[in-house]
Design a protein around this nucleic acid. Structure first.
Lengths: 144, 144
DNA sequence: GGCAATTCAATTGCATACAATTAAACTACC
DNA sequence: GGTAGTTTAATTGTATGCAATTGAATTGCC
């Protein structure tokens, strides 16, 4: 019951369900993120800022696995919305420092509801979630 | 050691590593897919075609979790490359039938090397891979 | 000190993704 | 048989993503 093309079957891929699952879950975030007027990419960028307050684009990109080509427009949007500021570092003008504004800080209290609402949408056993989390980070480590 | 914002920490998310992991793995495909001049989206579309030969856009979208807004331009590209044809169904002109061409069929022999090369790039225990596959499909089921 | 190499963010070009709308075709129902 | 509702792709508009390039700033090295 095997043929030489088995490896090409969609159902035999590991990448495909990963790709599809990520998209579907990000899509589920949308209604909740709409309430606080953030896209998913803006949301994860804010997440880092809430932890760090100040960070440059390169380091932010390392956290998020995104490059400046993606981040620059996202950060400009967040700047427009007054959640962050973008300023060249005095000591090294190549670096653009992203800083949280007071408005950005305040958004945190509204955003904290998002993960709560999401967890109600994803039906997964707690121990499976822990496992999945672990294995995904193990795979991510390989990309560094 | 917990605070009210713990749920907002990037490292506590399940969606983020899923999202990042999917992107990183798709990126790892790129050099192999470049060799056969396919993008990842074109590749997974071809994968379905190699299994099905004929399918309409809607049903293809259900397999791939993609809508016509994404698929139409992808399929037009594959048509340009002569791997598929797009024709309105005689019996119901709303349906666009995607069919594999002989060139598309022939590409399969080259494409079958891609999963082989990829598996050498992803370092994961076989039983973990099976488990991951299972849990991802379980999550995907919830999006139907 | 001066120049080559490196670093960083921004830009460009291309390819997704998806929500919302549109237009054409078909179905149901009377 | 006519019309309202439904279905299917395509289109439009917005937001990513990423490779490659650019330009400014900095560092290394002699």
């Amino acid at each position: 019951m095997t043929d030489k093309y088995d490896a090409l079957k969609l159902e035999n891929q590991l990448c495909f369900p990963l790709y599809a699952c990520a998209k579907e879950i990000v899509r589920k975030y949308k209604p909740f993120l709409d309430e606080i007027d953030l896209t998913y990419t803006q949301y994860i960028a804010m997440m880092v800022l809430w932890e760090r307050e100040k960070i440059n684009v390169k380091e932010l990109g390392e956290y998020l696995y995104l490059d400046s080509g993606t981040l620059t427009p996202v950060l400009k949007k967040l700047e427009q919305k007054k959640y962050i500021t973008r300023t060249r570092a005095k000591d090294d003008e190549r670096n653009v420092i992203i800083s949280l504004t007071k408005e950005g800080e305040m958004l945190r209290d509204k955003a904290v509801e998002v993960p709560k609402k999401m967890s109600a949408c994803i039906n997964i056993e707690p121990d499976e979630a822990v496992w999945l989390h672990k294995i995904l980070y193990k795979l991510l480590e390989q990309s560094k």
